[in-house]
């Protein structure tokens, strides 16, 4: 499947401001409702029309009919900080405190700073996007995220000329995260992208799903999503964003270097040592379906031209 990219961003942003999202508990239900309306409006409105005209579908409206039920999206999670079972994060993250929350922007950047989450999100307009989500374990979902382009964030904080990579770090709090009491991974969870990957319009900072604020098990209050890569490439509950000139030592690549690489692009032709990546099981479906190159987002192919994707798995 070829999806055309348009340079300027075609997705209508919802008008809800981040401050609104983070208002106090009393207003939250109302806000969540509004967000839901925003999502529905964008889905059924402009984007669908665009898709019908054969315009760009970067917002993913063509996937609307394939959405994975919210119940699955919010209960079947890999978030090892809250346990290694996929049904562990939901109960174990229930009381995780995401308020107050600070995000540190550091490294090779013109404007290093530590923001509280409200200030961090304030300049960005939120938009809805439906993405395929492919786990390295050969299951997949279709998820309506809410957030803003990663490139907007990068432009705003102005990395220096020497910065080549962006590195994300997940919160690490043994008090609140039962999973980190065992050295299953080398905590904290670190992920990263080449800066040109991070600048791609598909890469996204995420604060919500299904028209609501991210539930804790999905990486509240801030995560990122790179839909052409396996799910583990996305950091949840981000506390630090660092710009660097060295390829970040990412959590799974450190843990099992022969099984998980830095790039981790979805690729049906490069198998995991212990299972095939040629096919996947979409959650909610009985039969497997073929896995698409770059998870169907072939517009990113030029990022990797000349690279041996078998070696750079």
């Amino acid at each position: 499947m070829i999806i055309r990219v348009t340079p300027d961003h075609p997705i209508p942003s919802s008008e809800i401001t981040p401050e609104g999202v983070y208002q106090n508990r009393r207003d939250f239900v109302k806000e969540a409702g509004l967000l839901g309306v925003g999502l529905a409006a964008t889905l059924s409105g402009a984007r669908t029309a665009k898709a019908q005209q054969g315009g760009t579908s970067i917002g993913g409206a063509e996937l609307k009919g394939e959405l994975t039920p919210e119940e699955d999206v919010t209960s079947y999670n890999n978030f090892y900080e809250f346990g290694t079972g996929k049904d562990d994060p939901k109960p174990n993250a229930k009381n995780f405190r995401t308020k107050p929350w600070t995000v540190k922007v550091e490294g090779m950047v013109a404007k290093p700073a530590t923001y509280n989450i409200e200030d961090f999100l304030k300049p960005h307009k939120l938009e809805d996007r439906i993405y395929r989500h492919r786990c390295v374990e050969a299951w997949s979902m279709v998820i309506p995220w809410m957030g803003f382009p990663m490139s907007d964030l990068i432009k705003r904080v102005e990395p220096t000329a020497s910065a080549k990579y962006i590195q994300f770090t997940t919160a690490l709090d043994p008090q609140q995260m039962p999973g980190v009491r065992f050295p299953v991974l080398d905590w904290p969870y670190v992920e990263g992208l080449r800066l040109d990957e991070a600048m791609h319009p598909l890469a996204m900072m995420v604060v919500g799903v299904y028209g609501k604020m991210l539930p804790n098990q999905n990486g509240a209050p801030l995560r990122h999503i790179v839909p052409w890569k396996y799910g583990f490439k996305s950091c949840k509950s981000i506390v630090s964003i660092k710009f660097t000139d060295k390829q970040p030592a990412t959590a799974w690549a450190v843990a099992t270097p022969n099984e998980y690489g830095f790039f981790a692009n979805v690729n049906p032709e490069v198998d995991h040592p212990r299972w095939t990546q040629a096919r996947e099981r979409r959650i909610g479906e009985l039969r497997r379906r073929d896995t698409l190159m770059f998870n169907g987002y072939t517009q990113v192919a030029s990022l990797y031209s000349g690279m041996d994707l078998r070696r750079n798995f």
Binding site: D72, S75, Y76, D87, W139, R281, I283, G284, L286
Partner: peptide, 14 residues
């Protein structure tokens, strides 16, 4: 499969 429960998580075959 039949009643849409999730007794075996979201991926009952696995």
């Amino acid at each position: 499969l039949v009643n849409n429960t999730r007794l075996l998580t979201s991926e009952p075959i696995k």
